[in-house]
Simulated assay, not measured.
Amino acid sequence: MIGNYAGVACGYTTPLQGIGRYTRTIHQAGCTDVHCNGNQLFGAAEAAARQADATVLVMGLDQSIEAEFVDRAGLLLPGHQQELVSRVARASRGPTILVLMSGGPIDVTFAKNDPRISAIIWVGYPGQAGGTAIADVIFGTTNPGGKLPMTWYPQNYVTHLPMTDMAMRADPARGYPGRTYRFYRGPVVFPFGLGLSYTTFAHNLAHGPTSVSVPLTSLKATTNSTMLSKAVRVSHADCNALSPLDVHVDVKNTGSMDGTHTLLVFTSPPDGKWAASKQLVGFHKIHIAAGSERRVRITVHVCKHLSVVDRFGIRRIPLGEHKLQIGDLSHQVSLQANLGEIKV
């Protein structure tokens, strides 16, 4: 429950203690520790699941497996944990909830595809009150609103990713898949930014610009080195003269439960040889009562948020249609170079 940047708390609330505040529990350890090197205790865990109305499996990692100076060799659950999850879920009389503790991604494709596992909750290392938080979410006292801060890759991803290669961009010629949601385009277990809620939200664009002229600083900016790639070097754009783009989005809670919603704002450049397919440029977190609606203003700076770094390390603003993706809402903004105000 505690990561390696935490101090020693005066007390901890475990998931068992947290759940025990809501209902009577039957507890059975399936493994002696997180390494789960044997399956001798699995039978008792299966027997407990057959008696329970619902089963909560708390699995994952700890500091003995991932920490500073302790690196994982793979992305799967340690030891026999996967076998334990599958066997207990198959034996469970009621729904099975899988709670995962870890600092990094885990390939739980098997659980994602198992119809007997009703929910997967990633809690990171939740800290001293983690058991209370986990129980409050399971029993609906708290409506979850978190988003994944990283991509969850499949196990075979690491076979194509040497530990000594820190390159971000994909290189198909040598089978290098690239890193992070910005450059990796292969299959994932769960994507960056995923997060579910007990309610639903609808987005509607209230106002947003559709075109922007990018002023240039000098005639030098019109040379082939700047314009041939259909992009403007940021150093040749008059960024101070560009007003921020304000996009106004109405967000409505269309469900029956109050909830906190995080708007993630992604931008995608026009089609072309740009390495990043999209990038996160901002987020806005709001709490919305059931049935209510709130307007959110999102500010996008052209030079900062709509520019990309090309393979030569030069930051450019691609001209053409940029896409803003905000939840299920998509908005196009066209950028053109403005040559009219250049002084000779």
Rank of each mutant, 00 (worst) to 15 (best):
R116Q: 05
F183Y: 15
F266I: 01
R297T: 14
G79W: 14
R93T: 11
A73M: 05
K323C: 04
S225F: 05
G7E: 07
T223L: 12
R311C: 01
A275F: 09
V34C: 02
I121E: 07
R72Y: 04
G255R: 06
S92R: 14
N224S: 13
K285E: 08
R174V: 14
H287C: 03
V108S: 00
N253F: 10
P149K: 09
G186H: 05
L77D: 11
G272F: 13
L196Y: 14
I314D: 11
T142M: 11
G282F: 06
A337S: 15
I326T: 06
I298Y: 10
H331T: 01
F183M: 09
Y181M: 02
A45L: 02
N204D: 12
Q336E: 05
Y181F: 13
D171V: 13
R174I: 12
A276H: 07
C303V: 06
S118D: 07
T32G: 10
L245I: 07
Y153K: 08
H331E: 04
S277D: 03
V123Q: 14
A170G: 10
A67K: 00
K147H: 15
I121T: 02
Q17E: 12
G146Q: 08
R90W: 05
A6S: 14
D114F: 07
Q51D: 00
K252G: 01
E83R: 13
V308A: 06
A135V: 01
S197R: 11
D136M: 02
L324F: 11
P318K: 15
G18E: 08
I134S: 08
R295L: 06
V108I: 03
I314Y: 03
H301P: 03
S213Q: 15
H301C: 10
L329I: 02
H80T: 14
T109C: 05
R87M: 14
G259V: 13
T267G: 04
T254N: 02
S118F: 10
V234Q: 04
T267N: 05
L306M: 15
G259Y: 06
G7Y: 01
V212G: 04
E66A: 03
K112F: 01
P244M: 02
I120T: 08
T200P: 02
D258W: 01
G145H: 15
A276P: 00
G193I: 00
S118C: 03
L335G: 03
L280D: 01
D258P: 03
A91H: 03
I134Q: 01
V333S: 08
R179G: 07
S92L: 09
R315W: 10
M150K: 11
H27C: 02
I286H: 10
A231D: 03
A44R: 00
Y198R: 15
G208M: 09
A91K: 08
Y12I: 07
N156R: 11
A54L: 06
M150E: 13
L228M: 14
G272Y: 05
L16P: 00
A275G: 05
N204K: 15
S277G: 06
R50C: 01
H203E: 08
I26D: 09
E341K: 12
E68I: 05
P95H: 13
A49Q: 00
V212W: 12
H322T: 10
L264F: 10
I120S: 07
H322N: 07
A275H: 14
